[in-house]
Nucleic acid binder design. Structure first.
Lengths: 201, 201
DNA sequence: AGTTCCCCATGACAGATGTCATGGCTTGTG
DNA sequence: CACAAGCCATGACATCTGTCATGGGGAACT
């Protein structure tokens, strides 16, 4: 019997996935969590064999949870399911020791199969997402450029970005200009959207 | 027995919700669809009692589907479930004749209860979403302002917005300026994000 | 030691953007 | 009808942004 921890902030989805996984004879959902922190705390207690984590949750990112679990419970395999699969996320997730990465568009038997695969030490990444990740390539942005671009996402004026990044406005403009050039966008807002779509920020 | 049509583009979620609803003795999922168009076509054939529709789908909006269903199948009650509930959506949905509106954060028994409620002619709107909708108020934007602001969402330069809206760049700037004033933002990008958060565009 | 890359900053310039005043046209309303 | 409100446009002005040149300091690699 494979013991599963399920973490997803959407109660309905979580309950539904639990119901679905429980239909399998060899799978058992032993715990559920609605937030990243809760997932980690629960995992410490119940020590599941496999953790199925949603990527986007209110507090901790799914990847952050995976990182913690990899450290604290090396025997527990972590896999991530997500609605909005961006290339960068996949890369970060694999770096964090995640063994499975799926979009929520897959069918239920694929999910069950992957749970079994990661439990026996295997890995599985959705082919479509993998292809996207490869085509997206590495981020050409320097760390600082990524920081600044992220602050620009909300549409804030440069003044405010500079304050929040503790930089001079001139420097901010330089970084943004560089980022705009690298992304082929025509202004920082477009560049920010582009970079987010690629998963670079 | 209440016959249900389930529409959601995420296969996993759809299957899971089907599994969950089928656990109830008086509910039966008689059809599933992955897109809006598919949902309408399927509904014409199977004539379900209740349609449970996801708000965001690749092609048609959940609200658009609800509108079609209300016309073609007046005996079928439509309810919408969504991950990202914005106030404006709720308003549009109710105008389209939707009888139930829920975020995916609700528990499974709430879902089942609401299915029964709408089937007997009742209505149900998630209290939290309702409160949000009320506090958001009506859109202060004129139709044209909303159009232009929507085009501004992607970060395009004014030149392009003007082309896409078939307006002079000067006019676009006037509308945007007005919208910026009404939203209290400091530039059009912030205004666009704000308006989207409020569900105005 | 030299080279390269990143970080941070400044200054200058052109072009994009936000704001305001103004005016003509249409539509709906008291 | 008079009036208000929305739609569309133009022009002028101040400010914001994007771009480029320049330079110092630090880390990494050859």
């Amino acid at each position: 019997m494979i013991r599963i921890l399920l973490a997803d902030d959407e109660h309905l989805i979580r309950g539904a996935m639990a119901a679905l996984l429980s239909l399998e004879d060899d799978l058992e959902v032993v715990a559920q969590a609605a937030t990243g922190a809760e997932a980690i705390a629960t995992a410490r207690v119940v020590r599941p064999d496999v953790a199925v984590i949603d990527l986007q949750m209110p507090d901790l990112d799914g990847v952050a949870v995976a990182q913690s679990l990899a450290l604290e419970l090396p025997t527990c395999s972590t896999m991530i399911v997500t609605s909005h699969g961006r290339p960068g996320h996949l890369k970060r997730a694999l770096a964090a020791g995640v063994r499975g990465f799926l979009p929520k568009t897959v069918s239920s038997d694929v999910l069950a199969t992957v749970v079994r695969t990661v439990h026996t030490g295997g890995r599985y990444v959705d082919p479509a997402l993998a292809a996207e990740a490869i085509s997206a390539g590495d981020s050409p942005l320097t760390p600082r450029e990524a920081d600044v671009l992220e602050l620009a996402l909300e549409g804030a004026p440069i003044e405010e970005i500079a304050r929040r990044a503790s930089l001079s406005p001139g420097t901010v403009r330089n970084y943004l200009s560089s980022a705009v050039g690298k992304t082929g966008a025509s202004n920082r807002h477009e560049a920010a959207r582009f970079a987010r779509a690629k998963g670079w920020i």
